[in-house]
Amino acid sequence: MTRNRAKRPVHLHWGFMGIVAAGGVLGALTRYGLGTVIPAPGAWPLPTLIINLSGALALGALLEGLSRRGPDVGSRRVLRLALGTGFLGAYTTYSTLAVDAVHLLAADAAPAAAGYLTASLLGGAAATTAGIWLGAWHHRLTAGARS
């Protein structure tokens, strides 16, 4: 009698976990570094906004580009895990977005908090959409060059 053992999910493979962890370390260090050099005018959380919007743009472009190149296997899976889940997952910081909004509210700056949350959420959706568009455009451009 033979048994068909189900494949282990990706998140249970030590090698894939290591790839995500390595990307996460680099993403967190990059976020920290940028957070120290981008000014925060009047204690408004501009660094977090820029980091999150750029991360949303990059993630949209990455995932769209990878999905247009084929199934999530081999090097595409490694890139998705290292750059998408690891690097960009640690680079973007939605927990800090929430803390920043609470700090603005605690400082009686409700309009600033509302503007920050609106810019973050709507801007994040727009940045992701732009990233998807860029990923599709790049795919069409490179596919046409290969033909």
Results as ranks from 00 to 15, higher is better:
residue 74 G to A: 08
residue 85 T to W: 00
residue 139 H to K: 07
residue 127 A to F: 00
residue 8 R to Q: 15
residue 143 A to H: 12
residue 106 A to E: 09
residue 118 T to S: 14
residue 77 R to T: 02
residue 82 A to D: 04
residue 19 I to S: 05
residue 137 W to I: 08
residue 138 H to Y: 07
residue 31 R to E: 00
residue 127 A to T: 10
residue 133 W to C: 13
residue 21 A to D: 01
residue 90 A to N: 06
residue 57 L to D: 07
residue 35 G to E: 02
residue 13 H to E: 15
residue 86 G to N: 05
residue 55 G to S: 03
residue 144 G to A: 14
residue 25 V to S: 01
residue 26 L to G: 05
residue 144 G to L: 05
residue 97 L to H: 03
residue 63 L to S: 14
residue 11 H to W: 11
residue 1 M to Y: 08
residue 140 R to D: 15
residue 143 A to T: 13
residue 65 G to E: 09
residue 117 L to A: 12
residue 29 L to E: 10
residue 65 G to N: 09
residue 120 S to I: 00
residue 103 H to M: 10
residue 8 R to I: 11
residue 129 T to F: 09
residue 5 R to S: 15
residue 59 L to E: 07
residue 121 L to C: 09
residue 7 K to A: 15
residue 113 A to H: 04
residue 7 K to I: 12
residue 115 G to Y: 00
residue 90 A to V: 02
residue 93 T to E: 00
residue 89 G to S: 02
residue 56 A to V: 06
residue 41 P to D: 12
residue 108 D to E: 12
residue 49 L to T: 10
residue 107 A to M: 01
residue 61 A to E: 05
residue 113 A to K: 01
residue 39 P to N: 05
residue 129 T to Y: 07
residue 87 F to Y: 10
residue 79 L to I: 11
residue 146 R to A: 15
residue 78 V to I: 13
residue 138 H to C: 14
residue 13 H to A: 13
residue 112 A to V: 02
residue 132 I to K: 06
residue 81 L to W: 01
residue 34 L to V: 05
residue 95 S to Y: 06
residue 12 L to C: 09
residue 2 T to R: 13
residue 84 G to Y: 02
residue 36 T to S: 10
residue 95 S to W: 09
residue 116 Y to Q: 08
residue 61 A to K: 02
residue 56 A to C: 15
residue 69 R to F: 11
residue 41 P to A: 10
residue 78 V to W: 05
residue 118 T to V: 11
residue 58 A to T: 04
residue 132 I to V: 14
residue 66 L to P: 11
residue 46 L to C: 11
residue 77 R to G: 03
residue 39 P to M: 05
residue 70 G to A: 10
residue 90 A to M: 00
residue 83 L to K: 03
residue 60 G to P: 08
residue 36 T to C: 01
residue 25 V to P: 04
residue 80 R to P: 07
residue 13 H to S: 14
residue 4 N to G: 13
residue 136 A to Q: 10
residue 145 A to G: 09
residue 139 H to Y: 10
residue 44 W to S: 07
residue 144 G to W: 02
residue 99 V to F: 11
residue 68 R to V: 11
residue 74 G to Y: 03
residue 23 G to H: 01
residue 64 E to W: 03
residue 8 R to A: 15
residue 95 S to G: 02
residue 71 P to L: 07
residue 87 F to P: 04
residue 83 L to A: 14
residue 129 T to M: 06
residue 54 S to N: 09
residue 18 G to F: 03
residue 137 W to N: 12
residue 83 L to Y: 00
residue 142 T to M: 11
residue 103 H to C: 08
residue 102 V to W: 06
residue 143 A to K: 13
residue 38 I to E: 07
residue 88 L to R: 00
residue 11 H to E: 14
residue 95 S to P: 08
residue 121 L to W: 01
residue 74 G to M: 07
residue 142 T to V: 14
residue 73 V to K: 14
residue 55 G to I: 06
residue 74 G to N: 12
residue 142 T to P: 10
residue 10 V to Y: 06
residue 55 G to W: 00
residue 1 M to S: 15
residue 15 G to L: 11
residue 68 R to K: 15
residue 94 Y to I: 07
residue 110 A to T: 14
residue 87 F to T: 02
residue 120 S to H: 05
residue 34 L to E: 12
residue 47 P to V: 07
residue 7 K to Y: 03
residue 28 A to V: 09
residue 76 R to A: 07
residue 67 S to G: 14
residue 111 P to A: 08
residue 97 L to R: 06
